[in-house]
Design a protein around this nucleic acid. Structure first.
Length: 213
DNA sequence: AAACAGATCTACT
DNA sequence: GTAGATCTGTTTT
């Protein structure tokens, strides 16, 4: 079977939906926690105004410019970490933000790290997901092919009917691209919050249709 | 050495 | 559902 990096080397908009259902597992001395991904967002590198790579390579985003199959971790809002899987060919700086997932192993340890709250919220949201898995800046650049932090792709991609798409969350620019993907009927998908500059949806937010314009 | 900017979360109504 | 707070790392002079 092909290596992880090979399966992630394609265009980010094609690879991102295939990460749904994948399992990210982190093994530490305290135990292991695994999360099944239910929501991701695509970031298209230097051409994407919403990407950290938009203004070219820096010390912080250099991992995105490297080989696919590695983890790009960044720090934000003074207290949160978020993690991305680097995809696309080396040098293209594409990445997929892991927005939410379902804890499928090590629930107790995840609860310890997260504190009190419903289990469905343990990895609901990009910063919560990192916290539940015990991921921080030390893991920036980690190879997910093998090691304590490993990503396992599903045997077969999900059917298109199960995948919904919509605009990305929390961006000032380029918020009109439907580059956010999530699995239908998953309680662990994070709440949709529209970008600040956009006019509110006439009907309730959070409902996306596959292929909707 | 200083200013900036933020791919968010938690709490509350 | 909505509003508000919040702190560090990164970037830039």
């Amino acid at each position: 079977m092909p290596g992880l990096a090979d399966r992630l080397a394609g265009p980010v908009l094609e690879v991102a939906p295939t990460l749904l259902g994948a399992v990210l597992r982190h093994e530490t001395p305290q135990g292991a926690v695994a999360v099944r991904l239910t929501e991701v967002e695509a970031y298209a590198g230097e051409q994407d105004p919403g990407s950290h790579a938009y203004r070219g390579p820096t010390k912080r985003n250099e991992v995105m410019f490297g080989a696919p199959g590695r983890l790009y971790v960044y720090f934000t809002y003074g207290m949160h970490y978020c993690c991305n899987v680097v995809v696309g060919e080396t040098g293209h700086a594409s990445a997929v933000l892991l927005r939410a997932g379902e804890v499928v192993e090590g629930t107790d340890l995840a609860r310890e790290r997260r504190g009190n709250g419903p289990d469905r919220d343990l990895a609901r949201g990009p910063a919560r997901l990192c916290q539940a898995l015990g991921i921080d800046l030390r893991h920036n650049g980690s190879d997910l092919g093998e090691g304590a932090l490993a990503l396992t792709l599903p045997e077969a991609p999900h059917h298109l009917e199960e995948v919904l798409t919509g605009p990305r969350v929390g961006l000032r620019h380029a918020a009109d691209h439907p580059w956010r993907f999530w699995l239908a009927d998953e309680p662990t998908v994070s709440v949709y919050r529209p970008a600040k500059r956009l006019s509110a949806e006439p009907r309730g937010p959070g409902r996306g249709r596959p292929g909707a314009p």
